[in-house]
């Protein structure tokens, strides 16, 4: 009997949590109008959320591109189709790995930082102090971070893809002997700006929205103790990752049929 009761409680708590998250989202979105007038707050956050994630994104992009080229070559060469290496690398990155991997990296680095920062501000009563000073913490603290995360993601994803393509070139052309001209031309023949690149950007916008939402919400909703903040940070990373992968499946099936 107790097991069923705890299961019920768990489900109800979950639904209540979703409700809080939804209310939080609507409050944050209306706060975005406020933030557009105080754009300097957004710029500050663009730096800590976007610029500081750049390094890990670029390095990872490079390595992913290089691995793609290696693995792609090994498979294609069996069919005598190694001339298509550029296309394989570019399509994989543009459609899937660029948006998805960037989102995962972003969740791990920027998302967890956002959660920890906001959670800590809650735990040290800084958010409460702001409320008592008649400043809405959602307008002042949450909304700028929300906007910054949403804007940074597609930029980071695109840079990831580009660096990955270059990495693929380094390995494919430099190491494995694929012709440079063929590498680029096979890409240009097959990668469509609208279908592939635009869809990739749309994906990363959706991921940016979801990951940032989860990150700021978990921070804002965290228990104001050190254990609470650490659990919230974990929830951000795990939740964002699962959401990204799940959404990727949905988006891919909608976009590429």
């Amino acid at each position: 009997m107790n097991a069923i009761r705890s299961l019920g409680a768990w489900v109800i708590n979950g639904i209540v949590g979703w409700g809080r998250a939804g209310l939080f989202l609507s409050h944050s979105l209306t706060a975005i109008f406020f933030v557009l007038r105080r754009f300097r707050l957004v710029i500050q956050q663009l730096f800590s959320v976007g610029v500081l994630t750049l390094v890990i994104v670029l390095v990872s992009g490079l390595f992913v591109g290089m691995v793609l080229a290696l693995q792609g070559y090994n498979t294609l060469v069996d069919f005598g189709a190694e001339s298509q290496l550029g296309l394989v690398v570019a399509l994989t990155l543009t459609r899937e790995l660029g948006p998805v991997l960037t989102a995962l990296l972003f969740a791990g680095r920027a998302g967890s930082a956002l959660t920890a920062e906001i959670g800590l501000m809650k735990a040290t009563e800084q958010l409460a102090a702001m409320e008592m000073m008649a400043v809405d913490p959602i307008e002042r603290v949450v909304a700028p971070r929300f906007l910054a995360g949403f804007l940074s993601m597609p930029l980071l994803a695109v840079m990831f893809t580009l660096v990955g393509v270059v990495g693929g070139h380094l390995v494919g052309v430099g190491l494995l002997g694929v012709d440079s001209g063929v590498y680029w031309s096979s890409m240009q023949e097959g990668v469509d700006a609208r279908e592939d690149i635009l869809n990739g950007v749309i994906k990363s916008l959706v991921f940016g929205f979801v990951v940032t939402w989860i990150a700021v919400f978990e921070g804002y909703d965290a228990m104001p103790t050190s254990e609470g903040v650490s659990r919230a940070t974990t929830r951000t990373v795990v939740g964002s990752s699962l959401a990204v992968l799940g959404l990727d499946f949905v988006l891919t099936s909608l976009m590429f049929e």
């Binding site: 300097r40 610029v51 570019a90 543009t94 804007l151 695109v158 580009l162 240009q188 700006a193 690149i197």
Partner: peptide
């Protein structure tokens, strides 16, 4: 503040530039 805004501006420009490069060089726009 000045350096911060400069860096962010560069970041955004780099992102848009990467998108443009991607669209024109990698894609077929």
């Amino acid at each position: 503040r000045g350096t911060l805004e400069l860096t962010v501006g560069l970041f955004v420009l780099a992102g848009i530039g990467a998108l443009a490069v991607l669209a024109f060089k990698v894609g077929n726009l």
